[in-house]
């Protein structure tokens, strides 16, 4: 199973080897999609966890216990379909092709599985239909 999550590190635990523990103890495969960490300010990691469902759950629990804020990527990248006008301004700026226009309806398709929460789409959307909490 694969899950994308955003880890938010407060400054005091930036030094803790949390990813290492997740890999070693829970046999999780970790793919870091994006990172923004300043030792003095804490930071955020967008990661993809791969492994047994139970281990993922246990791993997330451990991270939370250590003081890391954990949110699912889907909950942090918000696309307001009602506001979206399907203009496609965002699609050519998406580095992972998570955003495409449907071949038949020409409406925007958002494939969260491909998204790495880079924020480009939120920056350029002319009607602010996408917002990212990163």
């Amino acid at each position: 199973m694969k899950t994308k999550v955003i880890f938010t590190f407060p400054p005091e635990i930036v030094e803790k080897p949390i990813s290492h523990t997740l890999m070693k103890e829970f046999d999780l495969w970790i793919n870091i999609l994006r990172a923004k960490i300043e030792p003095s300010e804490g930071g955020k990691l967008v990661i993809e966890l791969q492994g047994d469902e139970e281990n993922i759950k246990a791993g997330i629990e451990l991270a939370e216990k250590s003081g890391v804020g954990v949110t699912l990527l889907e909950n942090d990248v918000l696309w307001d379909k009602e506001l979206c006008v399907d203009c496609g301004a965002c699609i050519s700026l998406c580095p992972t092709q998570a955003l495409t226009l449907d071949r038949d309806t020409f409406k925007l398709n958002f494939d969260f599985g491909r998204c790495v929460a880079c924020g480009s789409c939120a920056q350029v959307c002319p009607v602010k239909a996408i917002s990212i909490n990163f």
Partner: peptide, 9 residues
């Protein structure tokens, strides 16, 4: 490419 103009609309 990006259209800017909404074809759906």
């Amino acid at each position: 490419t990006s259209p800017l103009s909404s074809y759906a609309k």
